[in-house]
């Protein structure tokens, strides 16, 4: 399976500002001066060696993650990240019908507002199915495109062939992929998905708060058990998580504890807080690495800071 992150921001889209861009350029130039850079051929290697938060950005699009198996394409959530994903599919699949299953975690704006800009959904030959556990899932998506809010109604998106109303906790199949669901703690409810294919397991569990990890194995730890990859909501720092109790999000530190307890192999932090800069996200990620080292000397858990374009193959 191949996982690609198209949108990693939580709450609201946050494009890089000119101030942030200028700050990156300033820092890169200062480091170039310090390194004595004096020829163009030196620049590619120099850029590679720059700190992550200078040479890259996490990105500002809201949540969207693509999972490709041999025959199927799953898309988790339709935040603004689904727009560039759609454009990429149109480029890749010229002339061929696009088949995709969009699995919604919930219908808060940051998880659905990209759908009206998902170009493949407008092509009648395409075959797109939308899944969700929330009640009246089709109505919720339809009303987003009521004329008061958007000029193009859902009926024009003729590539969308079906809405599948799931029940909380329901397991189902898409082709040869097994999918399990679990209810997560978030205002209005949220669904976590477990994708099992060809002996590998991916968990998509964004928008959830985990207030306690009691001694008894909680359902969520069992859900995470031995997963190859968990995509985890780490919107806040530990401190903010307590300040914003019941806002329904989590932190890197809690994610690491849960992953260690469940024997997870890879843990990707996503749904980044919109007010956090790349430098702050990188700092939080470095601290998460330090925390992991302190908590367990012997473990194979690999951590990832999700950013737009990050691909993980399993």
């Amino acid at each position: 399976m191949k996982v690609k992150f198209w949108g990693v921001r939580g709450s609201i889209a946050t494009p890089l500002t000119n101030i942030e861009l200028n700050d990156k350029i300033k820092k890169a130039l200062e480091l170039a001066l310090k390194a004595g850079l004096n020829a163009p051929w030196q620049t590619p290697q120099f850029i590679e060696q720059l700190p992550w938060y200078i040479r890259k950005t996490a990105g500002g699009d809201t949540t969207c993650v693509e999972v490709e198996t041999g025959d199927n394409r799953l898309i988790f959530d339709a935040g603004t990240g689904i727009r560039p994903l759609g454009l990429n599919l149109m480029r890749q699949e010229i002339g061929k019908p696009i088949e995709a299953s969009i699995l919604l975690s919930h219908t808060h704006w940051d998880h659905i507002c990209g759908l009206p800009f998902f170009v493949p959904a407008y092509i009648p030959n395409n075959n797109i199915t939308i899944y969700g556990t929330h009640s009246k899932i089709e109505d919720r998506i339809r009303h987003q495109q009521d004329f008061e809010y958007f000029p193009v109604p859902l009926d024009i998106m003729r590539g969308i062939k079906e809405f599948v109303q799931l029940r909380e906790g329901e397991s189902f199949r898409i082709g040869d992929i097994e999918i399990d669901t679990i209810s997560l703690y978030h205002p209005g409810g949220c669904t976590g998905y477990k994708v099992s294919y060809n002996g590998k397991t991916i968990i998509y569990a964004t928008d959830s708060e985990y207030k306690e990890l009691s001694p008894e194995p909680k359902p969520i730890i069992d859900f995470f058990r031995d997963a190859d990859l968990v995509i985890f909501d780490a919107q806040y720092t530990m401190l903010e998580n307590i300040e914003k109790e019941d806002w329904g999000h989590s932190s890197t530190i809690i994610g690491i504890d849960m992953a260690l307890k469940a024997g997870v192999k890879k843990l990707a932090f996503t749904h980044h807080e919109p007010t956090y800069s790349d430098e702050k996200l990188w700092d939080i990620f470095q601290k998460a690495q330090n925390y992991l080292e302190l908590q367990s000397e012997k473990n194979d858990l690999q951590l990832y800071l999700a950013y737009e374009g990050l691909s993980i193959s399993l």
Partner: peptide, 12 residues
């Protein structure tokens, strides 16, 4: 040793 569960109790 302290984990996130311990930190959470202190903060709460």
């Amino acid at each position: 040793y302290i984990s996130s569960a311990g930190l959470r109790v202190i903060l709460a």
